[in-house]
């Protein structure tokens, strides 16, 4: 669980990846980059969101690299459908061409676990896949904070999160989660053990009634608990 993102921790566990993009050149490129890693196995490709559910059922990927703009079923709809209908859905890592893509926030609301720019360096691409596969961190472009501001950041710190009130420590952890920090990073920031952080995160999710970190972050932004400034 070291923050470095090296494949060492999994002890040989391979992350199965499905690539969804309407452009073949993008699929081929992502496949070459991800497939070159010993701990990542690209198990399939799809050119349209409509192909995703059957492929997911058949191939059982751990992570879906999902393009947003596709003819037919776009990445947002596909993500929403996937996470709503699968019993054990894969993590969705949305890949976008533009950092300021107005649909990034939609993807977050749909339940995507992270974001990746297609122009990211190969090391960032594989790191993102690993981090999302571990299910512990969100990868944000800076733009998401501005978008979140437009949606729900007006409330400042007069937060009214749903559910029972968070302890001061839990609130701190939620802010760091919303900032895209991993458990290990939060542990380092707060001088806590990683297991303690995991416990705090679990408590936060339970109190908010959130399915996962993504939902918790959406709530944090929309309630105004977290603002772009802090």
């Amino acid at each position: 669980m070291a923050g470095g993102g090296a494949p060492a921790d999994g002890g040989g566990a391979v992350t199965r990846v499905l690539i969804v993009d309407d452009d073949e050149l993008i699929r081929v490129g992502l496949r070459a980059i991800a497939g070159a890693q010993p701990d990542i196995d690209v198990v399939g490709e799809a050119a349209d969101g409509a192909e995703v559910p059957p492929l997911v059922a058949k191939l059982r990927p751990d992570v879906v690299l999902m393009d947003v703009r596709m003819p037919g079923i776009d990445g947002i709809q596909a993500t929403r459908h996937l996470l709503a209908t699968s019993a054990d859905p894969p993590k969705v890592l949305v890949v976008t061409t533009f950092e300021n893509d107005e649909y990034v926030y939609d993807a977050l609301r749909a339940g995507a676990s992270g974001f990746l720019l297609k122009r990211a360096r190969p090391a960032e691409v594989v790191d993102a896949i690993r981090v999302v596969a571990r299910g512990e961190s969100l990868l944000f472009p800076a733009a998401i904070r501005r978008l979140a501001d437009a949606y729900g950041g007006r409330g400042g710190h007069t937060a009214r999160l749903p559910g029972p009130p968070l302890t001061e420590r839990e609130a701190e952890v939620l802010r760091l989660v919303a900032a895209g920090r991993s458990n290990a990073e939060i542990a380092a920031d707060l001088v806590l053990g990683v297991e303690t952080v995991k416990t705090h995160v679990g408590n936060v999710l339970a109190k908010l009634g959130a399915r996962d970190r993504t939902q918790a972050v959406v709530l944090a932004y929309e309630s105004g608990f977290v603002t772009p400034a802090g």
Partner: peptide, 25 residues
């Protein structure tokens, strides 16, 4: 912006992938 941005993304990604597998493939 969309089309040229997409094209630049494709070239960037393809170049990155090519560099990654240059020796093996």
């Amino acid at each position: 912006h969309d089309s040229v941005g997409h094209a630049l993304t494709v070239t960037t990604l393809q170049a990155a992938a090519a560099r990654e597998v240059l020796d093996t493939d």
